[in-house]
Design a protein around this nucleic acid. Sequence first.
DNA 1: ATGTGTGCAAACAGTTTGCAAGCTT
DNA 2: AAGCTTGCAAACTGTTTGCACACAT
Lengths: 123, 123
Amino acid sequence: MKRNTKQGEVILTVIKSAGRPLTPLEVHELAVKKVSRLGIATTYRHLKSLTESNQVVGVDYPGQPPRYEWADGKDKVHFACRSCDKLFALEDTTGDAPPAEAPEGFRVQGFEVMLYGICPECG
Amino acid sequence: MKRNTKQGEVILTVIKSAGRPLTPLEVHELAVKKVSRLGIATTYRHLKSLTESNQVVGVDYPGQPPRYEWADGKDKVHFACRSCDKLFALEDTTGDAPPAEAPEGFRVQGFEVMLYGICPECG
DNA sequence: ATGTGTGCAAACAGTTTGCAAGCTT
DNA sequence: AAGCTTGCAAACTGTTTGCACACAT
């Protein structure tokens, strides 16, 4: 995706301004408001290419559809509500160990840490 | 899944003794060795029910199939290798903040923290 | 003018469901 | 005997791909 198209611009803008991770369907629904006739396949194609170029990152929450959010370079802390299933992107916190990282009002019941990198066999 | 069947027993044993998160296909392939004629649907049915009863937890890694692992009650730290795409379940560490949690030999390039709980609106 | 990006529809992969038969209780 | 569980195949959902046309370069 190296050319400037209306579709690409709108899709990126939607993700950038969402402030939380969106599912492919949500991205598409929001983007269609600006470009009617936008095909779902185009949305998927852009999500893939934006992910590959690291402008967008995928966030997965078991048992739920994948979500995508703007990659601002910072590592992320997310909060998944077990009641409403919404996903929140939390502000970069103090760097405390996980259970302490949620702001007031969020009741943490458990956490999962995923580290990315190179394993001993591959390194 | 309240009855004791050969299939259920084998599937749980496979997950318990894997020591790392397995995809549904991996679970099925390993279980078939003990119960030939085991249907893939049965594997999915047990994964779902084991997850619902919290004996097993799902671990997702964007762009990869879902994985399931034995839930021993502890919160988990996982390491995803960007070269071979394998997933490792790391020992429960010191409780340090994420970048410091990997044992020697693992080169951490980034991390993702997922907190589970109840959000302010639902709480 | 060239060739990438798009929309559409068809193809796909992974997961779920309906059903008759088998097994556990 | 009652009814949960299984295997099979068909149905579904979410994602990808082939193709002809449109548009950015």
